[in-house]
Design a protein around this nucleic acid. Sequence first.
DNA 1: AGCCAGGGTCTGC
DNA 2: GCAGACCATGGC
Length: 263
Amino acid sequence: MNFKINLPGGMDLDATCFCGQAFRWEKSGDTFVGIVNGDIVNCKMDGDTLIVSAENENEEFWHNYFGAQLDYSALKTLFCTDKALEPCVKYAPGIRVLRQPFYETLCSFIISQNNNIPRIKGIISRLCEAYGKPLLNGNFAFPSAKDMAGLTVEDLAPLRSGFRAKYLLDAAKKVASGEVCEEKLLQLSNEDARKLLCTIFGVGPKVADCVLLYSLGRVDVIPMDVHMKRAMQERFPNGLTQDVAPYGGIAQQYIFHHTRTGK
DNA sequence: AGCCAGGGTCTGC
DNA sequence: GCAGACCATGGC
């Protein structure tokens, strides 16, 4: 099924898919192919319009996924009133923060700890291949919590995820049992949701904040990794402005991408 | 060889 | 509450 989504302020698919927030997108010519919720998704931009080809016809879902409810044009105008933030926005103005499936996001950022992006992608790819549902063309869905809840660390050995394997299994068990679930988290404040996420063995403040921002839509949450800590110290000694703070997570994405790949 | 990568846990003060 | 060791793996 094909449909179009209007994205105010446009989107740079290249920057958005490869700025360290999502790990299951590939570029194929001028098309971007992602695996999302067990669906192979093909995307292309036409001006400010996103053309999506996917089996999942729930337009609401894709609106959510690509943050279509947010006017990035207005956001960027706001961000550029901060002269320290402006160069980060101008460096890759087409970045959007995606709202991704809960369990996949949780696992992905558990895997991300003390790790680099290419290796994160590799581990996730091997996890899907081993325990995810087969899709067309040799693709695999991200496994569900129930798919993984009965596994052992030995079962995860082929992933070469190192010390993170036991963390993944505790996340799988707590999500499969409903002890930690998206429905609960959505009702909680940032602080309480963070606390609940941190009951998972191997989930600390940074991973929890990534889940809050990239899956639960808390765009005011700023995950602080080493790059962001450095960037904030050097470029934003007084923090973000009061006007920007409610969208701090989105500003973070521009800052993170700029400090990592800019010069 | 040593350092770093979108950290967290555990121990000891 | 906070610093430091330790944790697997791979690229540079």
